[in-house]
Computed example of a mutant assay.
Amino acid sequence: MSSDLDTTLVTVDDILAALREREELTARLSDVERKIQGIRAFIGEARFSAISPISTGAADAPATPPSFRSVLQEALENAPRGLTYPELREILIDAGFGERLENSPNNFFNAIGRLLSQNKAVKRGGRVFWMNFYEALSDDELSALDGHDQAHTTPEAIIATLKEASGPLKAAEVIDIMVQTHSYIKATAIYAALSRLTKDRTLKRDEHSRYSVA
C-alpha cells in the first residue's frame, strides 16, 4: 500500500497534526452540509434536486431525472398567483415532456392529483395553487383570478375543442365535450365566447348552427 508518508520518519507531531487536520476537515464538511441543507429548505426539494447532480453526496452520481410531479411542484412553488392547466402543460413541454405528455396525458392529471391529495397544492376552478400561496390570497384576489381565467381560457379551450373535433359542432356539443375537459368553465361563458369568436371571424357558423374554426 502506498503512502504519502515515509513510516520510518513519522513522529508524534506528524500524527497529531494529521489528526488535527482530520478534525478540521470533518468540522468543515459538517458546516458545508448545514449550508446545503439550508439552501435545500429555502428553494424547495424539487428545485434543489433539479439543480444539484450530487444530492446523494456522491460527486459522480447521476442526477435523478425530473418527473411530471417534480417539475409541476417547482413551477407551483414559484407561482404566487397559481397556474392554469394550459400554463402547467406548457411548462412540462418546455421541460422536455412534450412527447410523454402527448402519449400519456393521464400522467399530467395524476401528478397534479398527488400534489392535491398530499395537501401541498389546491385547485380552484382551472387554476392550481401551491398551498401557502393560496392561503395568502384574499377572496377578492381569488375572485379576480376566476374572472380572468373565464375570460381568457374559454376562447382558447373552444378553439382547441373544435380543432380536435372530426367536424363542425353545435354549441350544445361543444359544451358536452368541455364539461369533461374544462369542467370549471360555465356554459354561459362558452355561449358568450362562441358569439364573440364568430363575430370576430375566428370561428364560422354554418346554416345548421354548427361551429368550426375559420
Rank of each mutant, 00 (worst) to 15 (best):
Ala189Gly: 06
Thr181Trp: 04
Ser183Ile: 05
Val174Asn: 06
Leu169Gln: 13
Thr154Glu: 07
Lys170Leu: 08
Pro155Val: 01
Glu156Pro: 03
Ala151Arg: 04
Val174Asp: 07
His148Ala: 13
Ala165Arg: 02
Ala144Met: 11
His152Gly: 05
Ile185Met: 15
His148Phe: 04
Met178Leu: 10
Gln180Val: 14
Ala187Thr: 11
Thr181Cys: 06
Gln180Arg: 11
Ser166Cys: 13
Gln180Glu: 14
Ile175Gly: 04
Gln180Lys: 10
Gln150Trp: 00
Pro155Ser: 09
Ala189Asn: 06
Gly167Ala: 13
Ile177Pro: 03
Ala172Ser: 14
Ala144Cys: 05
Ala189Glu: 04
Thr181His: 03
Ala187Met: 14
Leu169Tyr: 02
Ser183Gln: 08
Val179Phe: 07
Val179Gln: 13
Glu156Phe: 05
Leu162Met: 03
Tyr184Ala: 09
Ala189Ser: 08
Ala160Cys: 10
Ile175Pro: 00
Ala160Tyr: 06
Ile158Asp: 00
Thr181Val: 09
Thr153Trp: 10
His182Met: 12
Lys163Ala: 14
Ala157Leu: 08
Glu173Trp: 02
Asp146Leu: 06
Ala151Met: 03
Asp146Ile: 00
Ala187Tyr: 07
Tyr184Trp: 12
Thr181Gly: 11
His152Gln: 10
Gln150Arg: 07
Leu142Arg: 13
His148Cys: 02
His182Lys: 07
Tyr184Phe: 12
Thr153Met: 10
Ile159Ser: 06
Leu145Thr: 01
